[in-house]
């Protein structure tokens, strides 16, 4: 069962082609990893999927049961709501001046906002808003427990240590109740212990029914947890398959080790 289909996706910045005719599918209930050397176009691909860039050509389709939704046709903010695709960022983007709990409530904005009756009932303290908020806090608490941040719930997000900020960003994305979670290098900067805890977290998210798409440099993480790997190099897909196949793929190995050219022209926009 497919959750995401990327077909012939191309993204150009001026004369620069950051992603060139890439097609792949991600299956529901699986962890799909996108790997590749620096400047391979991974983040650009991600930004197209999550609506931050409009692709130059090609299509991105997310499958909800029997319904297909073209993500590249949706406005940016609808990707999370209608597309039910959530993401994290390579350089963490938390609401650092808000508390951890507030961060998770902002993630549930649309559902909560609907319960306030355009804000009027909410201001007056009427209607189902209280119940909705209680439910929202429960969901937030659930993900705080999952990410081991329960004790820090009332601390400012910006005051958390780095690893905790990474986990908080994942918890925040999960609070939008996505069907597909896109993670941009979630293990970057984590120590081995944190990294292994992250693996468990990602596996438990998968067990909860959310499919994952992740960009990762840490091969330890990728090989251990992914079900499916897509390899990009210089904007094109060079391999696609199960971890075991990728590990022995000669094209991939030479792309990583570098055949003759030392990747001296990284594609702009690919890894900001």
């Amino acid at each position: 069962m497919t959750i995401l289909t990327v077909a012939n996706l191309t993204m150009r910045f001026g004369g620069l082609t950051a992603v060139n005719d890439v097609s792949f599918t991600a299956r529901q209930g699986e962890i799909t990893a996108i790997i590749g050397p620096n400047g391979a176009g991974k983040t650009t691909l991600f930004n197209c999927i999550t609506g931050f860039y409009k692709p130059s050509s090609g299509s991105i389709t997310v499958v909800h049961g029997s319904k297909n939704l073209r993500l590249d046709k949706l406005p940016g903010h609808s990707i999370a709501r209608k597309g039910r695709v959530a993401r994290t960022f390579q350089n963490i983007r938390l609401f650092s001046g808000m508390s951890v709990l507030e961060n998770l409530l902002v993630a549930q904005h649309n559902r909560l906002q609907a319960s306030t009756g355009f804000g009027v009932l909410g201001i007056l303290g009427l209607g189902g808003y209280r119940a909705a908020e209680r439910h929202a806090i429960e969901l937030a608490t659930h993900w705080l427990a999952q990410t081991g941040l329960l004790e820090r719930a009332d601390d400012p997000a910006g005051a958390l240590p780095y690893g905790a900020q990474r986990r908080l960003e994942i918890a925040r994305a999960m609070c939008t109740e996505p069907l597909l979670l896109c993670l941009d290098e979630p293990a970057a900067g984590l120590n081995p212990r944190e990294s292994s805890a992250l693996n468990d977290l990602l596996l438990s998210i998968r067990a909860g029914g959310t499919s994952l798409l992740l960009i990762e440099h840490d091969m330890g993480v990728v090989m251990k947890i992914s079900d499916h790997i897509v390899v990009l190099d210089h904007g094109t897909k060079i391999a696609d398959g199960k971890p075991a196949d990728i590990r022995s793929n000669t094209v991939v190995i030479s792309a990583y080790l570098g055949e003759d050219d030392e990747d001296d022209a990284p594609l702009a926009g690919a890894t900001p």
Partner: peptide, 29 residues
């Protein structure tokens, strides 16, 4: 004060903190 405790007010503050993150969370900026 009421609005600050509402989703709308929180979204305002989140917007001040990080507009890009807001968009990724489905908030109509």
């Amino acid at each position: 004060l009421r609005l600050r405790r509402q989703p709308l007010g929180r979204a305002w503050e989140a917007l001040r903190e990080d507009e890009t993150a807001c968009r990724s969370l489905g908030i109509n900026v």
